[in-house]
Write a protein that binds this DNA or RNA. Structure first.
Lengths: 109, 109
DNA sequence: AACTTATTCAACCAAAAGGTAGAATAAGGT
DNA sequence: ACCTTATTCTACCTTTTGGTTGAATAAGTT
């Protein structure tokens, strides 16, 4: 999967209220599917699928501990995503600084 | 619209390949619907709707210049979104620092 | 081996998303 | 007034998404 595609997938993964709350919970620490499902008024299976979406996007990873499959939030994906936003914000703002400079010059002349 | 909802909407808005490319283009400067539509192999109407989604999420804003409705990327929404990611990354990592500290203590004893 | 716990798979359904094309609206130019 | 340009609205269609339930799998306990 290319970096660009993964980024789109990451945004899409975070663009669902249930998944966004799952991520917020996981920022506090790893959790099992059961624990996460307890937070929502939907079935365990539905939550399991949400986690699958997050995993496919690289937002979370999973391991095995006895019967459980603890879900772990991946900092790297958060960083990559924030970096993309930051890069575009900077490009946008530097453009405006240039524009401001031009306007300033015009004012002076 | 609450901040939380807007954030979900923003992620969802960026979670589409066409819209993500629109944002990348807009980081270079404002553009009209026509100009943006020229970048994609889909109809003008489809692009117009993508822009509407971005606008509803607060990612872009629009003005009027003659018949055109130039689309402008909103830095504030990029910042809010990046901030959310950053905050959760930090919470996640500070947790691991604490864990590392605990492991370090155990090693010493 | 049988039972319990944790999670996933599969089939199904309704709603939402993303595309199309044609008609309508808005603003400028002749 | 009329014509052109830019954009949006509407109706429609297909695919994807998010939910459900019941059955299956995986691992641990008795």
């Amino acid at each position: 999967m290319t970096a660009q595609l993964e980024l789109v997938e990451t945004f899409a993964a975070l663009g669902d209220p249930v998944r966004q709350l799952i991520v917020e919970r996981l920022a506090e620490g790893d959790a099992t599917v059961n624990e996460l499902a307890a937070l929502f008024p939907i079935s365990l299976q539905a939550v399991s699928r949400h986690i699958k979406v997050l995993e496919a996007a690289g937002v979370v990873s999973r391991s095995r501990v006895a019967q459980s499959r603890p879900v772990h939030l991946e900092a790297a994906s958060l960083i990559r995503t924030a970096d993309w936003l930051e890069a575009h914000r900077l490009r946008l703002e530097s453009r405006y600084e240039r524009l401001d400079a031009v306007l300033e010059e015009l004012k002076e002349s």
